[in-house]
Nucleic acid binder design. Structure first.
Lengths: 193, 193
DNA sequence: TATGTTGTGAACCGACCGTTTCAGAACCAC
DNA sequence: GTGGTTCTGAAACGGTCGGTTCACAACATA
């Protein structure tokens, strides 16, 4: 069988995810990834093949461990009317907690979309699917909150939620107040009957 | 007085702006800037002091030559009711023209916000002010379109326009259809009386 | 034409980039 | 134990990074 790895793969990927999140793909240096993961580069390259391989694993972990758990109440068989509000106000609060990754660096995938690595086809598909996943979840959240409203109105509201979240992620690094304002605005639309 | 520069400063800055727009600050290499501007690095450093100095000039040019001319109808003393619709549908069309910088790379300032350079204080202020400028312009555009509507409703609509534009910029690189959908959604809200 | 100033090209700087190599350590099966 | 396989640390790879240096070209002035 051979020598036993001295690390836990999940922990390594999570640590790398944090580095990519803050610094971006091109800005995350191999020494920084070594330091964060505690692994020597030879082990990183042995396990993941390349910096890009580690990045892909980090993106998968971001989707599985960060995005989808928070979206779960919005994609469950039964969606509670408050689910969409809970999600958005939870995000609003997270963007205010200084020091946390989300507050300082927004969203790994939105950041990726704005960088040259976003031109890569595989990355492009991943981020586009992520946006669609967000939109679908918000669509169900809005439907659960305003079941009586007409379909077009609900769709526009779900679109507004999607745009608010994406723009909040995109701007939080430079303008946390503006990011929170975007979320507050759609929260107000969701509060009115 | 000394030797006459062999270049036109404006042309140099505009060429550099394009490189930063596509590649981002950290991704724009000095050789790439030399090639785009036609200047040797010694001339670049003589004129702008550093890569960052050239970037700052490029950002200023982006605001003066790209952003503000398009926003002008929305900040004029008299704002036409169609101004906001004209702006958004113009942006929608621009995001669809393949090959153009806007379609492939979104917005220089949004991209900057999502990158590590966004942590710089001066950059932070610049992008935050840009967002505020956008929001103010859209506010006037919405006011001109729906003068009879209540203030809160107009504010939420202006917020939705701001978020739609920012998110369209943030996503156009990976998801042009999603970006256009965000704009279409607010355009629909602006079409209804 | 002589002088002082400014712009330009080429060569070079140390630092860092992502990646590879390789010897040896740690484990399994026999 | 022995052999085969896998993981790990250190060192080194060529290439590129942003930035500097310097000799010289090109101009304004006197």
């Amino acid at each position: 069988m051979g020598r036993t790895p001295a690390y836990e793969a999940d922990r390594v990927v999570r640590a790398a995810r944090e580095v990519f999140w803050r610094a971006g793909y091109e800005g995350a240096s191999v020494p920084a990834l070594e330091h964060a993961t505690g692994l020597n580069r030879s082990s990183i390259y042995h396990a993941f093949g390349s910096k890009r391989g580690l990045f892909d694993a980090a993106v998968q972990s971001y989707l599985d461990d960060v995005v989808r758990p928070r979206l779960r109440p919005l994609v469950a068989p039964d969606v509670v009317p408050d689910a969409i509000v809970t999600y958005l106000s939870g995000l609003r609060a997270a963007l205010g907690r200084e020091g946390e990754v989300q507050a300082t660096s927004g969203c790994l995938l939105v950041n990726t979309s704005c960088a040259p690595i976003g031109d890569d086809d595989a990355v492009r598909r991943t981020v586009a699917d992520y946006r669609a996943e967000l939109r679908a979840a918000f669509g169900r959240g809005v439907d659960a909150r305003f079941p009586g409203r007409d379909a077009a109105g609900r769709a526009h509201l779900a679109d507004a939620c999607t745009s608010a979240v994406v723009s909040a992620f995109a701007l939080v690094r430079v303008d946390p107040d503006g990011a929170r304002a975007a979320l507050d605005s759609v929260l107000a639309l969701l509060a009115t009957a």
